[in-house]
Amino acid sequence: MTDISAQTEALGGLLTRDRIVRWAPVLVLVALVLLFPFFEFLADLVEGKEHVYLLDSRFFSIRNGARIGIAATPALMVAVGATFIIIMGSIDLSMEGTISVCAVLFAFAFLGWGGTLASWAWLAIPLALVVGALLGFVNGMIHVRLKIPSFMASLAMGFVGTGLALLLTGGDRLRVEDELFRSLLTVRWLNFPIMCYVALAFLLLAWFIQSHTALGRNFYAVGGGEQLAQSSGLNVARVRIMGFTLAGIFFAVGALLAVGRIGIAETATGNNFMFVSITAVVVGGTALWGGIGGVWNTLVGVLIVNVINNGMVVIGLPPYVQDGVLGTLVILAVALSTNRKSVTFVK
């Protein structure tokens, strides 16, 4: 007699393709972390300076780690929001607009209601989150109800958002100088500023949503087989709209952290977030066609992107190389993660 129950693929076999694909982002991250100190080591070697690998590294230090952390946290929140969307097999390109609007509205409310967290101005924080949710909701509605592919719907919404932010500020910068709010950056526990811990908390929340809520699991169902999910009775349209709304909230968190980091809210607050966050998500191993990956992948992806950015500065490469490197990285990550047999054609 055959025992069907025993047919489950043995999880053994150290180097299965799946396993390599799954762990590749982590390996890349580790390799990068070891690589940049090596360049420093080489540079000092050439100059004849004494240098103990890793120990004398400027890159591989807690100080620099905190620097990477500060640079990475807003992008991490944005990328986490985008992760939910990409798991569903859609994409969200609206983040730059959403972030700018949230940041600017937050700043207006914050300054208008007292200008310090110790007053009613703290209400500006929930307000920003609500605004993010609202923009995401509209984005999702346009995508689902008007049947517009998400990349286009969200791109257009992004333009609308940036335009709205510009309209609100008229091009001015708003300074948020409340010490209590800025303590996100200025107060440090164990060498890392509070904003890193805030981001960590939201990352855990995202993980909880992803793995312990019906909504989170439904994202995977939609990404893994939209039509099957629909025919099983899942309200796919609702899941999609909720996904975009949720992403909007995370974009708003990213906006708050970005304002906390530089103390300024303006139309340009959202700049560059789109490409960096999408890059981080796909480089982290969340597949563009949906169903695979998650927020931990995104954490790895965000770290990869920021380690590259930081490392290149440390070893003295000009900053403009970064865009090109990230562009190449995205193409590689998507190309490597695509199972060519399952794709008929791509447009």
Binding site: Y220, A221, G224, L228, A229, L234, G291
Partner: peptide, 16 residues
């Protein structure tokens, strides 16, 4: 008609 990236139990109760 199972969604392969979900767990067995999620597939069994999908939609319910």
């Amino acid at each position: 008609s199972l969604i392969t990236n979900l767990t067995v139990m999620e597939n069994i109760f999908l939609g319910y």
